[in-house]
Computed example of a mutant assay.
Amino acid sequence: MRAAIIDGKAIGAQMRAEVAEAAAELATKGWQPKLISISVGDTAAAELYVRNQQKQANSAGVEFEARNYPEDTSLEQLTGILQGLNGDPRVNGIIIQRPLPDHIPVKVLQKLVHPLKDVEGMHPASIGNIVYNDLALGPCTAVAAVEILKTLPLQLEGLNVTVIGHSEIVGKPIAFLLMGLGCTVTVCHHMTRSVAMHSRAADAVFVAVGKPGLVTGEMLKPGAALIDIGINRIETPEGGKTVGDADFASCAEVAGWITPVPGGVGPVTVATLMKNAVLATRMQMDHYRDAYARTDV
C-alpha cells in the first residue's frame, strides 16, 4: 500500500478563494477585514511567518499591517497598545508573533486580545468554547488539522482517532473538536505507557509533539489517515531540511492518507487564520450593529 499524499496547498488555496469572496462582500458594507501583527524585539525568528501571513492575506483580500516594537517595550506599554487596538473598529484581528522577549509572557498578551479579535484562537474564551462544541474563532493549527481530516472519504461518526500530543493550543483542542464531530478519541502524551498500542488501533492519527521520526509505519493501522502537525528542522549531509513528527517513508507505506511536511497542515493553518479574520470581522459588524441600532424608529 502507498498512501495518498494530502495536498495542503490545494486545500488552503480553495479556502483562501472562499475567504476572498467573503472579504469582498464585507468590504462593500464598509467592513474591510484588517489584521494587525504585533512583534517585539528581534524579529528574525518570526520574519518568515510574518511574510507568509502577509502574502496569504493579500491573496485572500484581507488587509495586513505588521508592527514591530523595541526589545525594551514593557508589558504595561503593550497592554495599552492592545487595549487601543481592541477598541479600534478599523482593526478586526490581532496576531501576537512569537517568540517574545523573556519579560513579556505570551499568555498574558493572548488574554489581553479581545475575544472578538482573537483570530489566532488563543484566548481562553476561544479555546473554552470548543469544550461546549461552540466553535467560533478556534486555534488555527488545531482547526486546520481537523479540516484536513474532513476532506477525506471517512465517516467521522464513530471514527477511532488517536491524538499524540496534548498541548493546550493543538492536541487538546483537536481532541475536543473531533469529539464534537462524533469521533472516539484517545489522547497520548509523555506519560502514555504504549503510544503504539493506541495508534495501531486508530483509523486516524494526529501527531503534534515536536520530535522528528516519532511515528513510524509499524505504529499505524494499514489504511489509516496520518495528519502530521510537527515542524522540525534537522541537519542532513545535503544541508538542513524541515520534517514532521512522522517518519514519512515508512508511514507512507502503511497509511491510506498522509500529510507531507512542509505542504500539509501549514498552508491550511494560514488559510484558517484568514478565515478567522473574515469571521471576526463579521462578528464585530454584527456586534456594533446590535449595540448601536436605533430602537425608536
Rank of each mutant, 00 (worst) to 15 (best):
P101N: 13
G8M: 08
L82F: 00
N86W: 05
A142H: 07
I227D: 06
V108R: 14
T151V: 09
N133L: 00
M219F: 08
S59R: 12
R90V: 01
D134Q: 15
R233V: 10
M274W: 03
V119P: 01
A144F: 04
E157G: 11
N129G: 05
S37E: 09
E47C: 10
I6H: 05
T141K: 02
I229H: 03
R51F: 00
N92M: 10
G213F: 00
G128P: 06
S59F: 00
T242C: 11
V205F: 02
G256K: 02
N86E: 08
K34Y: 09
G240Q: 15
H190R: 14
N52A: 15
V268R: 04
Q97P: 03
V195W: 03
G263M: 03
L116G: 05
G180K: 10
P260S: 13
V170G: 02
G84Y: 03
E76R: 13
V187R: 05
D290A: 14
P105F: 09
H166A: 15
G8R: 04
V161L: 12
M122C: 14
Q32W: 00
D247I: 05
L226I: 09
S167T: 12
E21P: 00
L85E: 06
V270T: 15
H190T: 13
M191F: 00
G210Q: 06
L35T: 06
V62G: 07
L220A: 00
R193L: 12
A57D: 02
Q284T: 02
V40S: 06
K172I: 11
L48E: 12
I130R: 03
I229L: 15
G30Y: 04
L178G: 03
V261N: 08
N52E: 12
Q54P: 03
L159T: 05
V161M: 10
N58Q: 14
E76V: 12
D7N: 15
M179K: 14
G171F: 02
E76I: 10
H189V: 03
E65S: 15
N160T: 08
G87I: 07
E157Q: 12
L220V: 02
H166T: 00
A208T: 01
G256A: 07
T192E: 12
G165Y: 01
P33I: 06
Q14A: 15
